[in-house]
Every structure is written in C-alpha cells, then in structure tokens.
Nucleic acid binder design. Sequence first.
DNA 1: ATACCTAGTTACTAAAAGTAACCTATTATT
DNA 2: AATAATAGGTTACTTTTAGTAACTAGGTAT
Lengths: 152, 152
Amino acid sequence: MEIETITDNQKVKVARKLKNMFGHINLKDPTLICPIRDVMALASDKWSILIVLYLGYFPVLRFNELKKNVYGISNKVLSERLKHLEGDGYLKRTMYAEMPVRVEYKLTNFGHSYLQKLIELTEWAQTHKDCVISNRTKFHGSLENQELENQL
Amino acid sequence: MEIETITDNQKVKVARKLKNMFGHINLKDPTLICPIRDVMALASDKWSILIVLYLGYFPVLRFNELKKNVYGISNKVLSERLKHLEGDGYLKRTMYAEMPVRVEYKLTNFGHSYLQKLIELTEWAQTHKDCVISNRTKFHGSLENQELENQL
DNA sequence: ATACCTAGTTACTAAAAGTAACCTATTATT
DNA sequence: AATAATAGGTTACTTTTAGTAACTAGGTAT
C-alpha cells in the first residue's frame, strides 16, 4: 500500500545524511559501524524502549510499578534491562534504606535526550500501525493464494 | 556523566506527547498498547534497523550484497528479516527470471518514511556513543570496587 | 511462629539466533 | 558427460537469550 507521500527532495536529504554516516565506514571492514550498533542494540530492544517510555510518562517508578506498567515483562528481564540501562547512563537507581526497601528508578538527562528520539519513533509507529497491519494481512493472504496455486 | 542540556521546557513537551500516547491506554489493561509494540518490535530489532539503513544508503541491493554489508548476519536471519520487512510493507522484493536468478530488494515509500525516523535515532546514537561507552566503563568499574568492598 | 512486604535472584524450560552444510536451476569448464 | 560455479535461499543442529515460577533477604505486623 503506497499511500506515503515522500518527496524525492526528502529522499535526497536522507541519502546525504546516510552518506555522512556510512561515508567514513570502510566497507571492506564493516565492523567499524559497531559502536553505533552496540549503543542501539542495548537500548532499542522491545523492553528497554517500553521502560524508557514509561519512565518518561511517570517521572519516578519503583521496581514493581515498572513491572505493572511494562506489561508482560518478567522480574528477570526487567532487572537485567534496568541494570544495563543504568550502566549506559539512561537511568538512575536510588535505594532508600527503609523497611521494606524502596528503590526508585528515574531517567537521567541523558535518558531524557534519548526519550525524545524514541517518542518521535513511537509517534511514527502509532500513526502508521494501521498501514503495517493492513500490509501484513494482505501479504499473508497473497502467500496463501500462492500456496494454493502451487498445489494445482 | 550528566553533560546533557535538556531544558525543563523540552521535558514538559515530551511529557505532553506521552500523555497523548499513554492517556487513552487503559492502565488496568496495558495490552492495549500492543499495536505499537508489535509494529516497533518487528522493525526495530538490531538486524532490521541495519537492513533498512543500508537500503537507504544503496537504493537497491541483492541478497548477497545485503549479506556483505549487514556485517555478521546469517543467511537464515537475513532471509527471515527480509520476509518480515516485506510483509509489513517496508521493502519490495523483485525477482528477475535470469540465470542465475536475480533478486532485488528496495525500500518502499513507506520504508523510506520509517528510514527518516531511524536516521534521526542513529544520528543521536552516533553523537552520543562516546557518552554511553564512558558511562558503561565507569559503571563496571564502580561495580568491581563494590565487590571488593563486599569481600572485606 | 507464621505470614507479609519489596526488590530482586535462581534453576529450569522454551524460543530465538547463529552455524554450516545442503538444495535448485542453469551455465561454463574440463 | 561429469564437475564446478553462481544466486538465493532452506534445513538440521547448536548456542544463546528470553520467559516461568519458585525462592531469598531483611525486616514488620499478627
């Protein structure tokens, strides 16, 4: 479904940006792209994105509050992701010596700067989700037709 | 390392956007966020991001060209990701009945609209990668110190 | 003594990713 | 006529990662 209206002008701009990014990558040794890969991989997996978004919506969240909001995440993965996100500087963990213990998570300023980019992506996903879903059903439909034809 | 300069004004803007996104989500049943989750999960894994970026840089790529550029990806995962990305409408696969067969992949206009958002994220990652890496080493360093203290 | 609280950890299982050999169809080479 | 090469994958197998559910620490309340 090609309802998108992207001008060639925009495409040219994007191509220029990519040239800046890829231009100084030695295509004979593409491992050099790794730093970005690495940064992206840690914070752009599905759970980390949700954690950061919820910490944008609620300025402070405790472990179990996060678990309730980031629906479907397990203790194990939540605790892992939080450690990584803390380690990379996206969020800060504060422990209060109360009883029972209280632990609070909140975004750092660095985390907020990431959140801004993430929100733009999420907004895009929200406005385009119907397009994706209609594409998907159409594609699967056509796959089934093909299989039927192949059987004849 | 809190070198980021994000104004409270920007934070307020972000909070408002999040309110729009999360506001109509029933927090008692957070599964309703799923469409976005679903869309994001399919196209924001580490390999899909790289595939889309390379198809932004090179307008047309064949299977083995993609494999060379998206360094480290296996046939299996590349073929899987390409099918998913095609199914969701990000790219188009064209097969030419030559011998040996030629198969070309290129972004759709929809894929280009996604690419634009992705580039902004990647640019962010590129400018902030040093920050992440320095955070990370500092964090791991402090963890080791803590372990030493615990042993005493 | 028992149950309860938070913030996790741990042992186990299921799913996903990575590896490497193989397949199909055709042309070129020995 | 057999062998190899090529493009674009697939398949069987192994390793890594994610998910499940039970458990732990340290203290409070019943």
